[in-house]
Amino acid sequence: MFRAMRRKRQQLSRAEAEAILERGTSGVLAVAGDDGYPYAVPLSYVYQDGKLWFHSAKSGHKLDAVRREEKASFCVIDQDQVVPEEYTTYFRSAIAFGRVRVLEDEGEVRAAIDLLARRYHPGDSQEHRRETIQKEYSALCMLELTVEHLTGKEAIELVRARDRAEP
Rank of each mutant, 00 (worst) to 15 (best):
2 F>C: 00
3 R>M: 07
4 A>K: 14
7 R>D: 08
8 K>W: 00
11 Q>D: 05
11 Q>K: 12
15 A>V: 06
16 E>D: 14
16 E>Q: 15
16 E>M: 04
24 G>F: 01
27 G>T: 00
28 V>Q: 00
32 A>S: 14
33 G>K: 04
40 A>S: 14
40 A>L: 07
41 V>R: 00
45 Y>C: 00
49 D>W: 01
52 L>I: 13
54 F>H: 01
56 S>Y: 00
56 S>A: 13
66 V>E: 02
66 V>S: 04
69 E>C: 14
73 S>W: 02
76 V>R: 10
76 V>E: 09
76 V>K: 13
77 I>A: 05
77 I>N: 06
78 D>Q: 10
80 D>T: 05
82 V>T: 11
82 V>F: 09
86 E>G: 02
90 Y>W: 13
90 Y>R: 14
91 F>E: 04
92 R>D: 05
93 S>A: 14
94 A>H: 10
94 A>K: 04
96 A>M: 02
97 F>Y: 15
98 G>M: 06
101 R>I: 12
106 E>P: 04
110 R>V: 10
114 D>W: 11
114 D>V: 09
115 L>R: 12
116 L>I: 09
120 Y>W: 05
121 H>R: 14
124 D>S: 13
127 E>L: 13
127 E>Y: 08
132 T>F: 09
135 K>E: 15
136 E>R: 12
136 E>N: 13
136 E>D: 11
138 S>Y: 04
138 S>Q: 13
141 C>G: 07
141 C>L: 10
145 L>V: 13
145 L>Y: 06
146 T>C: 09
150 L>K: 04
150 L>S: 03
152 G>N: 05
154 E>L: 13
156 I>V: 10
157 E>T: 02
159 V>Y: 05
